[in-house]
């Protein structure tokens, strides 16, 4: 439904005032005020009535880690006239400027940062179409809801006593028998790349999976009381990523479910809330406490996660470093 904007009301009031003052004290040149105002109002209403509503689509959002800036983009297409978008930013997200005025077709982007993990739903977007003078507007809502996952922060795990059993084995694994070959996925350890097999297939890298790996899967059970889910998730994610990076299969169980590969584990941990998993015993137990400390028990030994981790949260950087190294290897191969 077309409605006048504040500007439109003011212009209309100007025209009315002109007529009233002319009636009171004489016309003077008040036609020059009233007539253009009426012309602009008529033209604006006509333009808006003829303008089609634009379609607004949100570009996909890839998961991020806390503290990282990512860009939310909306594509505006079709329609005429001036379009103002107002994106609904979920709570907990710090957005730079979710409102913008553009002429269709255009793309509106703004930066967002999240401080905590979770599933954030962006949208819907309020779309206001104006005429070119800004006198009338029509408001619709574009269904652009999309969930965005923020993984828990992954810290570099330095102190490895508690996990020594799995990590050492991962390093000293006999790598003679290959149980299967699969394509390289960013995040795989570069040690697992089977160079000879990869040389046969240009444009691809193959990763070998070994027998010796298959036997044991490290199971992690994580629990947390209300309010301590974040430290629990961070600790579990860090441990799981460290193990996966060492070539160990991991299975993470929390109250909400179980996951085995890296993406699934991170997604699960992004969403999970406090609670206790249903599984009985696990190789590694991660337990968060109300104070915020996280106890990690494995192989009979117990320690806190703070003691295990590096002083700074590495998160995406460490993973991307690994990825970068892999890419460099990729370049070498391809040349």
């Amino acid at each position: 439904m077309m409605k006048p904007t504040r500007r439109g009301v003011v212009v209309f009031a100007l025209a009315v005032t002109g007529v009233v003052l002319a009636r009171l004290f004489g016309p003077r040149s008040l036609d020059a005020v009233a007539v253009p105002a009426v012309v602009a109002l008529a033209a604006g209403a006509l333009q808006l009535a003829l303008a089609a509503d634009p379609s607004v689509r949100r570009r996909p959002l890839s998961p991020t880690f806390p503290g990282d800036d990512h860009t939310v983009s909306l594509d505006v297409e079709g329609g005429h006239g001036v379009v103002t978008l107002d994106d609904a930013v979920p709570e907990g997200a710090i957005a730079s400027d979710p409102t913008a005025t553009v002429l269709a077709p255009a793309t509106v982007s703004y930066d967002v940062r999240h401080e905590h993990r979770g599933e954030y739903v962006f949208g819907p977007t309020t779309v206001r179409v104006h005429d070119v003078f800004g006198l009338f507007q029509r408001t619709t809502t574009a269904a652009t809801e999309r969930a965005h996952l923020v993984y828990p922060p992954v810290h570099d795990v330095r102190e490895r006593d508690v996990l020594a059993r799995w990590l050492d084995r991962g390093r000293s694994t006999d790598r003679q028998t290959v149980s299967k070959l699969r394509e390289y996925v960013p995040g795989d350890s570069p040690r697992d790349i089977h160079w000879r097999a990869s040389a046969r297939w240009p444009d691809s890298l193959l990763v070998a999976e070994y027998d010796a790996d298959n036997d044991e899967t490290a199971t992690i059970a994580a629990s947390a009381p209300a309010g301590a889910a974040d430290p629990m998730a961070a600790a579990t994610a860090s441990i799981a990523v460290a193990l996966l990076g060492a070539g160990v299969d991991v299975e993470v169980t929390v109250r909400d479910g179980t996951a085995s590969d890296r993406m699934a584990i991170l997604s699960l941990l992004a969403r999970t809330d406090h609670g206790r998993p249903a599984v009985g015993d696990a190789d590694i137990t991660v337990e968060a406490h109300r104070s915020g400390t996280v106890t990690v028990t494995a192989d009979g030994r117990e320690t806190t996660f703070e003691a295990m981790r590096a002083s700074r949260a590495v998160g995406l950087n460490s993973l991307s470093e690994q990825t970068d190294k892999s890419d460099r290897w990729t370049e070498v191969i391809r040349q």
Binding site: G18, V19, A22, R23, L24, F25, G26, P27, L30, D31, A34, V35, V38
Partner: peptide, 10 residues
Amino acid sequence: ITLVPQEATM
């Protein structure tokens, strides 16, 4: 175009 009234009343 003449839109406004042409006679003053006050």
